[in-house]
């Protein structure tokens, strides 16, 4: 690849206003979905730990979701 400078690369042959939003939006959407999922996982795990502490007589059940 032979672009001479960073500026040229960023310009994307004049199509910068089309190429970069695509990558930006894709990144934002996919990261957003991931972060949402990770937050949900952490939230549920915290809730589960809390409940298990409050109910020490509960042994982990085997298979009921």
């Amino acid at each position: 690849m032979e672009t001479a400078s960073l500026g040229e690369w960023l310009d994307m042959g004049g199509y910068a206003s089309y190429v970069w939003p695509v990558y930006g939006i894709a990144l934002a959407v996919l990261v957003g979905v991931l972060v949402h999922g990770l937050r949900a996982l952490r939230g549920e795990q915290t809730a589960l730990d809390g409940l298990r502490r409050d109910l020490p007589s509960e042994r982990e059940s085997n298979g009921e979701a």
Binding site: V33, L34, G37, L38, A40, L41, G43, E44, Q45, A47, L48, L51, R52, D54, L55, S57, E58, S61, E64, A65
Partner: peptide, 28 residues
């Protein structure tokens, strides 16, 4: 695959939380 695993773990954990909360409400 990564996001699927994360979300599935969250969903299954949520199911356990719901079950435990029910047990909490109804008494042990």
């Amino acid at each position: 695959i990564y996001v699927l695993l994360v979300k599935m773990r969250a969903e299954i954990t949520a199911g356990k939380v719901r079950a435990l909360r029910l047990r909490q409400v109804h008494g042990t």
